[in-house]
Structures are given as structure tokens and as C-alpha cells.
């Protein structure tokens, strides 16, 4: 495991504390490494251990070794499979929409980059992404509330009978995706702007002289320039979506017929509502394995970009 190997990488430094150079390394780096080992490697090993047991959070002393039974149960648990499916739909759906919408938003603000009003509007349009996620959930819980929400009031004004956004199983997941897209499109847009401003204007002028249409420009000039930043954005957003919890926690709480049950939420409920920590830990281990996979790719790209 990558985590375990980290401690062996430090072994030479640990062996020779007498040398002042090495002592400095110890004092500077080791505390942070130990901190992170305690917070990531230890919980991981402990989760694996728990996942092989039938254990209740309220009666930890009476846990019983059951081997891989939790994993077998989990992979045949319709709710868990549903939560994986929902998480996949959420991740793919949100990111696809974010990339497309962000591209158009970025184009608009790029063309206004010298315009004072445009700059002010851009700084306001990026507000959603740093706002506390539970507040984002509640803001939309309020707007989309079937009885007092303004969304359905406005819809009724044009003769549409608005659905119960979070209550209707058909609408719940799309609604959560829409909220997610609302919060994170500005991030993707800023990423793309960072890539787009690096395109020299001579390229645009040359394209214009050649009589290129807008989609030629997008395909042959703009997309190549922002490919790397889009990739980084997508990787980071995949990782974010695997962790998504807050928005669902304050809006649907899993939803009727589990329409918005996500892996994080599933795990949270098993562990802290039903106290089934063995079962929940098995789910946690599976989430971790998935995110280690994504992370390996992510780290490679982030390192390459930083240089």
C-alpha cells in the first residue's frame, strides 16, 4: 500500500539522528508525516479490521470475526448498489454539465475581461463555490420547497405545476445534480478562464483572417489550450463527488425510495444511525479503494502541472 511505503521512505532519516542535517529533516518533516499517518493510515487499517467483524458501535466489546461476510452482504445489498449507481450518475452528470456550462460562461467573461462591469460581475458569479455546502443545500431547499418556495410559485405563474423537487423520486437526484452544478460551474469556469487568457490574440486574429467559424476556433484553438486545466478540474470534481454529503444531508436525507442515497450517506447511516460499524466499515473500505484509484491518477497530473 502506498501509505505504508511512506514510512519506509523515511527510515534512513530515522536511523541517523546524530547527523545535524538528518536531525533537521526529522524535526521539520516527521511531525507532519506522523500526524497524517495517524489520520489516514491508522483509520484505514482499523477500518479494514472492523470490516471483517460483526460489530455494533454501542457494544464494541462484543464484536465477532466474520471474515468477508460484510463484503458479500454489501455487494448484494440493493441499497448499497443503488448508492453506487447514484454516486456514479451524480458524478458523471454533474461534471458533464459543469464543463459545458462553464465553457460558455468562460467565453462570455473572457470577452469582457477588459470591461470593468464585466469584471465586477465575474467576481460575483463565482460566489457559490466557496459558500458553506449545507447553506447551499438549505438555500435550494428553501427555493424549491413545494409549499413556500419561490420556484414553484414562479412556475405556477406560467401555468406549470412544479413538482415536489426533493420528494418525488424521479426529480430528487436531478435536483441534487442541479444544485451541485450550480455550486461548481463557477470553479470550472475560472479554471477555463485561466487557460483561455493564455491564448495569444494573434491566434484569434489569424483564425478570423482564415475565415474560421466559432466552432473551428473552439475545436482547434481553445480546447487544446484548456485541455489540461479541464482534466485537472474533472479529476478534482470526481474526488469531490465521491465525498458529497452535506447537500444531501440537509435536503433529501437519502430521499424517498432512496432516490438520492449516495455512498457517503449510506456509510454514514450504517455507522452512526444504525451503529453497524462492521458493515459500514466495509462500505468505507470500498469507497477508499475507489478513491485511491482516482487519487493515483490525480496526483500524477497535479505533480506534472505544478512543474
Amino acid at each position: 500500500m502506498a501509505q505504508l511505503a511512506a514510512s519506509t521512505a523515511l527510515a534512513p532519516a530515522l536511523r541517523a539522528p546524530a547527523d545535524p542535517e538528518r536531525r533537521a529533516m526529522l524535526v521539520f518533516i516527521v511531525p507532519a508525516v506522523i500526524y497524517l499517518l495517524l489520520l489516514s493510515v491508522f483509520p484505514f487499517i482499523y477500518s479494514v479490521y472492523l470490516s471483517l467483524h460483526d460489530a455494533k458501535l454501542t457494544q464494541m466489546a462484543r464484536k465477532k470475526f466474520v471474515g468477508f461476510e460484510n463484503y458479500v452482504d454489501l455487494l448484494t445489498d440493493p441499497l448499497f448498489l443503488k448508492s453506487i449507481q447514484n454516486t456514479a450518475v451524480l458524478t458523471v452528470g454533474s461534471i458533464a454539465l459543469e464543463v459545458i456550462l462553464a465553457f460558455f460562461c468562460a467565453k462570455v467573461f473572457l470577452s469582457l475581461k477588459e470591461n470593468r462591469t464585466g469584471q465586477v460581475m465575474r467576481s460575483m458569479a463565482i460566489l457559490p463555490m466557496m459558500i458553506t455546502p449545507i447553506c447551499v443545500g438549505l438555500i435550494f431547499g428553501y427555493i424549491l420547497n413545494p409549499t413556500l418556495g419561490i420556484a414553484n410559485y414562479l412556475l405556477s405563474g406560467v401555468g406549470i405545476d412544479g413538482p415536489s423537487w426533493f420528494g418525488d423520486p424521479a426529480w430528487a437526484l436531478p435536483t441534487v445534480i442541479a444544485i451541485n452544478v450550480w455550486q461548481w460551474t463557477p470553479f470550472m469556469m475560472l479554471l477555463m478562464l485561466a487557460g483561455l487568457v493564455s491564448i495569444p490574440s494573434s491566434l484569434y486574429e489569424a483564425a478570423e483572417l482564415e475565415g474560421a467559424k466559432w466552432h473551428h476556433v473552439a475545436r482547434w484553438i481553445e480546447l487544446p489550450a484548456i485541455r489540461d486545466v479541464i482534466l485537472i478540474g474533472i479529476i478534482l470534481r470526481v474526488i469531490d463527488n465521491l465525498k458529497l454529503f452535506d447537500i444531501v444531508y440537509v435536503t433529501t436525507r437519502g430521499g424517498r425510495s432512496d432516490a438520492t442515497e449516495l455512498v457517503t450517506f449510506f456509510t454514514y447511516r450504517q455507522q452512526f444511525q444504525f451503529f453497524k460499524v462492521g458493515y459500514g466499515s466495509a462500505a468505507a473500505v470500498i469507497i477508499l479503494l475507489i478513491s485511491i484509484l482516482v487519487t493515483t491518477i490525480a496526483v500524477k497530473y497535479l505533480r506534472r502541472m505544478q512543474k
Binding site: 519506509t8 521512505a9 477500518s47 454514514y268 473500505v285 469507497i287
Partner: peptide, 27 residues
């Protein structure tokens, strides 16, 4: 500092950032 496994250590530190908090919750 220059030491063996330096890049690896930095990468590992970054990778812990990606860990979902729920996976560490019970421990």
C-alpha cells in the same frame, strides 16, 4: 532537503488530501 523518497513522500501527502473523511469516521 535532499533525501531518498522525497517525491514519493510529497505525493503521498497530497494523496491523503483526497481521502473521503467518512472512511476515517468510525476509527
Amino acid at each position: 532537503f535532499r533525501f531518498r523518497g522525497q517525491e514519493f513522500l510529497a505525493d503521498w501527502i497530497l494523496s491523503t488530501r483526497m481521502m473521503p473523511p467518512i472512511a476515517a469516521a468510525v476509527p
